[in-house]
Design a binder for these strands. Sequence first.
DNA 1: TCTGGGGTCCTAGGACCC
DNA 2: TCTGGGGTCCTAGGACCC
Length: 430
Amino acid sequence: MLGQTPALMRRIAHLDMDAFYASVELLRYPQLKGLPVVIGGGRRPEDNLLARMRHLQPEREWDTSHLADIPVDIFPRLDGYTGRGVITTATYAARAFGVGSAMGVMKAAQLCPQAILLPVDFEQYRHYSRRFKEIVRDIAPVVEDRGVDEIYIDFTHVPGGQREDGRVLARLIQKSITDDTGLTCSIGVAPNKLLAKMASELNKPNGISILKPEDLQEKIWPLSCRKINGIGPKAEAKLKVHGIHTIGELAACERDWLTKHFGKSYGAWLFDAAHGVDERPVVTESEPVSMSRETTFEKDLHVQHDRAALGDIFTRLCQQVATDLQRKGYVGKTIGIKLRFDNFQSVTRDNTLAFFTADPLAIRQAAGQCLKRIEFKRRIRLLGVRVGSLVKAVDAPLPPSDTEKSLSSAITAQEPTPSKEISHEQADLF
DNA sequence: TCTGGGGTCCTAGGACCC
DNA sequence: TCTGGGGTCCTAGGACCC
């Protein structure tokens, strides 16, 4: 040890915005502060509050700068809602009634009918998402995106990132975000991503938690296994069958026993996770693997009876995926579809082409082929279209050669009017 | 009162090639 | 005739995450 400079301690932070969607909505509608509010559902024409206010008070001017003046009693309530949406998020006041994210809106309406229901506004959330990430990157540049409201930050080599085990830098980031946006966040700092993620949950909202290796036993082992990022409902249930409820109980298992019961890879990962071992780096950029669009119908549809509607939806999904790909500059060659039946059973089919594409017609055609391989015994609840095996459009191999093109155009030339062909000829099912 | 939408990664079997 | 591996690609399903 003598004469050795101490190795730089790896300091990884996980930052989680507090009740992100709800907090963004409260910035626009401060009059809802403290009230039970849920976000989700969507598809309510009467949600257009400004239009309602113009109708109720035509003598006044109503535009987006007057959102805070809309009286609370004008907002739509959960009570009387009909539809199959789920709750995206809920304010703490709503959570007190047992309402939580991923819950069906109809169930939430029973638990808390008086709660205010707002539709999701992704444009707003994306705006604040970009803003808080910019603020963090200006302070600590090594940032990994984990969705709209979460990031990992590598403090290790940031000047001051080691002070008070990372607390000083965490405070600076937290304050900078709140000063700029009015939003709060929770930050956990630990030697790795796994522990940082758990640490950020220990002190919410607007908290900072520092987790050191020696804290593992006291602060992590008493927690439920489900708190580990990567243990979901299935793995949790299976662990419970074996009498394993807490992370400490998991840590007491032999590695060999875990690999025997959970597979070589997952079992070994479970063992490491329970012991707080995680070497994954903070990844600052990554390429998308697939892009997809899917939709759940308002009512389950029948292959034959609702053929026209299904065909229109199918075509629209293909066009949306194609637009997404083109806007972001990608092409893909594995075209897939996803269906969910009325009993919630899902099936997928995919089809790898000989060429890369972002063309709505090519996608529609390949997806139509996939459709033919499905047996329809039940009504359909959801339909989706996916394009995978993506590469950047500029890096893609050349599109089909002229001979292939002339061949395919020779075939399609026999078909009537190309514009109608996309919805009727190309996939005889819909 | 049923359960959104957009992703990633893993597994496992079969085809096909060497 | 029977019996080999390994490697890669494709497809289907499923767990999990935000």
